[in-house]
Design a protein around this nucleic acid. Sequence first.
DNA 1: ATGGATGCAAATGATTTGCAAAAGG
DNA 2: CCTTTTGCAAATCATTTGCATCCAT
Lengths: 147, 147
Amino acid sequence: VPRRDEPLETTLQTSGRRLTGQRRLIVDLIREHGGHLDANELYRLARRHNPRLSLATIYRTLALLRDLGLVDEVHLGEEHHHYELKPVLEHGHMVCLGCGTVLEFSSSLLTRLKSEVEQAYAFTVTEAQVDLSGYCTACRPAQTTAP
Amino acid sequence: VPRRDEPLETTLQTSGRRLTGQRRLIVDLIREHGGHLDANELYRLARRHNPRLSLATIYRTLALLRDLGLVDEVHLGEEHHHYELKPVLEHGHMVCLGCGTVLEFSSSLLTRLKSEVEQAYAFTVTEAQVDLSGYCTACRPAQTTAP
DNA sequence: ATGGATGCAAATGATTTGCAAAAGG
DNA sequence: CCTTTTGCAAATCATTTGCATCCAT
């Protein structure tokens, strides 16, 4: 079982960056909420703890964490980005078009897909993003069609 | 072998929409370029044929085509949307982080992944978006690391 | 004719950036 | 101390929208 607290401090220090309260707060929030938060949600939550914190800091911190490889930036649905702590195991997302819920799934096929593509196309995969849109059990019957 | 020209006219007429020169042009461009164009690229190309055409029309047309199910809106990399004609067969994308090239791949695993998730999570998948980031043969050695 | 479509420009929403003040190591 | 970070506000980028005009049907 990997520890999840240290990477932040270690990685920041290694690259000459500082461990600020804001950064710790933002990482904690992402962790608590299991990811899938967007910048604005994060901003709202963060202000409850530190009302002076700015949206710009949210964005700057997210970009930093992404560059350091600590969080993944995912593109769900049509909208803006969502962020989650770098997952230990490969997984994809299911987005319900009815209620908007985001669920994670994992499957060995995901890993297999990666290796298959790497071999077949001589392409080195560094990251895989797999998003399935559709309807969860609750929303399936109510499936409103027509544009 | 499916014809690719008629769906536009038919689908537009069915829904009481009109077949304008702009719409035909935009669809032609997407087809010619095999997809993966973003709104701006499309705009630039379209103006070569019709200099008065506006960006707003590009966006409105893309939204319409998406709603009618004629094109797919895909989210590659971090950026804005890209569009491609609704593919006949399920496929995913490989985006090279070195040169930015977008390639398509297809794999039976993709279909299997879909059904596996549907069964395992009782989720009805209507669409799957699979994007692999990494490096193509040409860019692999030059892999510039470090943020 | 006549309702849907377009062009233009202004509005919106998300994200980025310049700069002076604040704070981590 | 000295450099990185932050907050604030203004700037930028992609996308959307109001409205008068235009054009397929």
